[in-house]
Nucleic acid binder design. Structure first.
Lengths: 331, 331
DNA sequence: ATGAAAGCGCTAACAC
DNA sequence: GTGTTAGCGCTTTCAT
């Protein structure tokens, strides 16, 4: 273990506070003489002293750590978001304690508690389906909290997300304009509000055009089942479908596998929510709705910093618009 | 803020130590009467008391936090690895403080320091190119340390990785067997040992078969340059190349973009290090060397736990074998 | 069976 | 200019 501040003080025959002031660059305002300050700095340098951040946090009440809770850090949406969140937080000298919920409420609640126990100063959270109570508790506790990607229905919270409904409308309308008549949608069997918005957009547009909807809800938590297989079966049963709208990245991957298996790549129109670097490698290249990941991360961090400065700041929402990226699969 | 242990003690008119013992399930060995113990438990339950983990850590010297330092958490290799590391660590009741180095040494050193300041109990690290000194310092400090993916040349450390050389040999030999004659390799201009091993395997195999090598070293850190463009140019200049071996996932993506641009998908044999869920969506489906991500994560965590138990345990290496996944691109 | 007291390493108000 | 002191919230030893 490294030396402590009192050992340094003892060694130099000064008091702990003198050392502390110097270490924290408050030599001036603490009116420490140039000479002692330098002597202390030299010694610190010599022995390579590093303060114990835990002790400092306990004393100051500031941990300089924030918690990031996502669904799955290995995901192509959450991974890059996490990277950018980390980068923006670093500019404010915060570090990140992260966890993946894998969509599990119980786990999510545990994670939140552990993070609070560790005195994180704030939390950035992509909540699971049924976190209403947990989030409500957090709000009461006044811990700075930013939700992103999805929010909690009927709860006033800080939130950063994208225009799920409008962007999805554009996507479906685009398919209709391109002459597709029987548009199906594949989504997950989850109440996540962003997924509900995407679904609602699909339904509304089809209804407005007197088209019949055809939705496959694929299981989201069950790890044993193979969504690609399920979609293959579903597609076979619904041969009239001529285009598909996927609600999110992993659903899209599974869907594309199914389409490929059936050799329908060029027969079906496709557009998906979320971009993946590889969508343009596939033939035909897949059209998508691209969420601006870095901007979302940036907004979340900025909102958090504001909340940190004023814990009574009223909740804010920020919607970052996604852009439609038309590629070959929907021409 | 939640109540503290002394407030509870005061309220219940018992001493802090009594409360502490009960909280930590040591009522028995502390010989606390069933009655008081229950009274304390009830009150704790009632007010929803949660201990301050920071204070506990300071007192015990155990932070129950480990640091995970990767190159890029948004990457399709490191993201899933991070997920699994987190999951395995959770079983041991550890949380993860993470950071991405983006290949930057200076940043990496800073990150290490901040984590040490925060008293992480151990570090799992995918080091950058030139971290020799930093890692040496960590070894001296006796902080439990596990390297993975790459190691530091000439340094005895705990390490988990894959059989880069052998697996790469198999990949290149496979291409030769398939009748490809002019095999090129695309890798990054980095000294990372795992990349060097992959390159060396390629060279050795070609030399053994009296074939000429053709390697493109694409820039790894420069964010302004477009590797796909560079590869397109390189491929045009080297039209005799009939197959390619990519050294890692993101190089592969860039390479596939180039190949696609040139419309050479079916003319070139391709095999890459690292699997991506989408490689089987592309036509032709791309052959690869697949690293067992979960096993790597598991091994790293296990090794760390052993190190935690015995800080003087000699350094261990664990090589987890990758499997070649033959798909259409190399038939 | 329980309490008192010291200590983990640091900060900060105040005294001299 | 610098030292003293009292915490931050917890654990742990030792006395009773």
């Amino acid at each position: 273990m490294s030396m402590s501040i009192s050992e340094i003080a003892k060694h130099l025959k000064v008091s702990k506070s003198t050392v502390s002031l110097v270490i924290n660059g408050k030599a001036e305002e603490g009116r420490i003489s140039k000479a002692s300050a330098q002597r202390i700095r030299d010694y610190i340098e010599e022995i390579g002293y590093k303060p114990n951040a835990l002790a400092k946090s306990l004393a100051t009440g500031k941990s300089r750590t924030i918690g990031l809770i996502v669904e799955n850090i290995g995901d192509s949406f959450f991974g890059p978001i996490a990277l950018h969140i980390e980068e923006y937080l670093r500019k404010h000298e915060y570090q990140v304690l992260y966890s993946s919920t894998m969509g599990d409420n119980k786990l999510a609640a545990e994670i939140v508690q552990t993070m609070l126990d560790k005195q994180v100063e704030g939390i950035i959270l992509a909540p699971t389906d049924a976190m209403h109570d947990e989030v409500e508790r957090m709000l009461k506790s006044k811990i700075p909290l930013i939700l992103f990607d999805r929010k909690i229905p009927n709860l006033q919270t800080n939130y950063v997300g994208t225009n799920n409904y409008e962007a999805s409308r554009l996507a479906v309308e685009h398919l209709l304009e391109r002459g597709y008549k029987k548009i199906g949608m594949v989504t997950i069997d989850s109440q996540q509000p962003q997924m509900q918005d995407r679904l609602r957009a699909y339904r509304d547009v089809l209804a407005e055009h007197d088209c019949k909807e055809q939705v496959l809800y694929t299981s989201f938590l069950d790890k044993t089942h193979d969504p690609a297989k399920e979609m293959t079966k579903w597609l076979k049963k619904n041969p009239h479908i001529d285009a598909l709208f996927f609600s999110t990245n992993y659903v899209c991957i599974a869907g594309l596998k199914a389409i490929r298996k059936l050799g329908q790549e060029h027969a079906l129109g496709v557009i998906t929510f979320d971009d993946l670097e590889v969508l343009e490698l596939i033939r035909p290249q897949i059209s998508c709705i691209r969420q601006p990941l870095e901007k979302i991360a940036q907004a979340a961090v900025q909102m958090l910093m504001e909340q940190l400065l004023d814990k009574d700041k009223p909740a804010t929402e920020k919607i970052i618009k996604s852009k439609i990226q038309i590629r070959e699969s929907s021409l």
